[in-house]
């Protein structure tokens, strides 16, 4: 229901941050985010407001959790190996 876009905080001035979204920068309000935000953090933006600071470690943990759903089968482990190899070699065209 709500468009949320992740971006990286470039600078913070009071309750206003400049956030980079893949090369496009925009001012984002920090009025409703519930944790201190510093440059280098990642936040989720909705209509110009940061609604959540995204902890980096959670990203790897989420992916691990998804892979657990596939666990318990030997071919899945093999598949994961193939996946990570395929994943590593895949680059997006600019």
């Amino acid at each position: 229901m709500c468009l949320g876009v992740p971006g990286k905080v470039m600078s913070v001035d009071g309750l206003v941050a400049v956030v980079d979204f893949w090369g496009v920068q925009k001012q984002v309000s920090l009025h409703i985010v519930d944790e201190p935000v510093v440059p280098g953090d990642y936040i989720l933006n909705h209509v110009g407001y940061a609604i959540r600071k995204i902890p980096q470690e959670e990203i790897a943990e989420t992916l691990a959790m998804y892979d657990e759903l596939l666990d318990g089968k030997p071919e899945d482990l093999m598949r994961q190996d193939v996946e990570s190899e395929v994943g590593a070699s895949r680059e997006r065209p600019s």
Partner: peptide
């Protein structure tokens, strides 16, 4: 299943 953004209590400030 969205723990990188969602917590049990939510955003208290908001």
């Amino acid at each position: 299943m969205f723990p990188r953004c969602v917590t049990h209590e939510g955003n208290k400030v908001a």
